[in-house]
Design a protein around this nucleic acid. Structure first.
Length: 275
DNA sequence: AAAGTACTCAACCGCAACGCC
DNA sequence: TGGCGTTGCGGTTGAGTACTT
């Protein structure tokens, strides 16, 4: 026996909400407050699933919600937080008054991912595509004796050295200039092939503009790998953040960068990584 | 003007966590 | 402590709209 559905789907209305239904939810909440959503449809006179009512309230009807467009400052903050914690939309949304996790998630998926990709930044790792390709190439030269595993919860794998370094490297986030900082930090010389029109060379940019994401790009990477000239190796960017002066792998580099970013949001991320 | 395609975002789905008994 | 109901969350879907051909 599987888990029973939250309500009988054949007997409840689905799809877009009408103004009348919205009014019933609003009236109910103003009279009774928010609580036990499974009872709301019956008490409010709605032929809807309680879960659907809760979603409608939290994502649309709440009086503290904003319905205007995202500002550049909000955009920057979303990108920065996504880089720090990934797709934890509820955590990100809490830093944006009046925005819901659904808002943030939709905005990321429809706008920001594409924006980053067009800038030559992988929206998953937040690193320039060219650097990822270089690091990807370096994986094949990993040492024979592996380090202790680093993949996993950050606060369980960080050693004291790294934690101290995070505190040292912690930078207050100044909203509004993130994208510029991102490029200054990671790409002293902007990888030109992402910002120029396609040329007649075999390194067509069609895969960048058409499909986004690292792996799509990587499929056409072999001819462009030399383009990483001018990109600082990641180990140099995070000077002193590891016990070694250089990283043995792409994964190590990513983890150290993430640690540094997380250090920028101690008040937000406190406890978020207690797995 | 019509058809096809791309985009947006509200809503849904399913799972995990939480809280109460 | 285990069962059950509720809530929170992230991923996905699909209807409506905008844009392109």
């Amino acid at each position: 026996m599987g888990k029973p559905p939250c309500c009988d789907k054949s007997n409840v209305k689905r799809g877009l909400w009408t103004a009348e239904e919205d009014a019933k939810i609003l009236a109910y909440v103003s009279n009774h407050g928010v609580g036990n959503w499974t009872l709301v449809p019956k008490k409010a006179g709605l032929n809807r699933c309680g879960k659907s009512c809760r979603l409608r309230w939290t994502n649309y009807l709440r009086p503290d919600l904003r319905h205007d467009s995202f500002t550049p400052q909000e955009e920057d903050l979303i990108i920065k937080l996504h880089q720090a914690i990934g797709s934890r939309w509820s955590v990100i949304a809490k830093q944006l008054p009046g925005r819901t996790d659904n808002d943030v998630k939709n905005y990321w998926n429809t706008k920001l991912r594409k924006k980053l990709s067009k800038m030559g930044i992988d929206p998953i790792t937040h690193k320039p595509f060219s650097q990822i390709l270089f690091d990807y190439g370096s994986i094949s030269s990993l040492p024979a004796t592996p380090k202790p595993p680093l993949i996993g919860p950050f606060n369980k794998t960080l050693n004291p050295t790294t934690t101290t370094t995070m505190a040292k490297t912690q930078q207050p986030f100044s909203s509004g200039a993130y994208l510029g900082q991102q490029f200054q930090f990671q790409t002293p010389k902007k990888p030109q092939f992402f910002n120029e029109q396609p040329t007649t060379s075999s390194c067509s940019s069609s895969s960048i503009n058409g499909g986004e994401g690292l792996f799509h790009f990587a499929a056409s990477s072999s001819c462009c790998s030399e383009q990483r000239n001018g990109i600082e190796p990641f180990s140099q960017q995070c000077e002193g953040s590891s016990s070694d002066s250089s990283f043995d792998s792409f994964v190590d580099a990513l983890l150290v960068q993430d640690c540094e970013i997380k250090g920028s949001f101690p008040e937000i991320l406190d406890g978020c990584f207690d797995y």
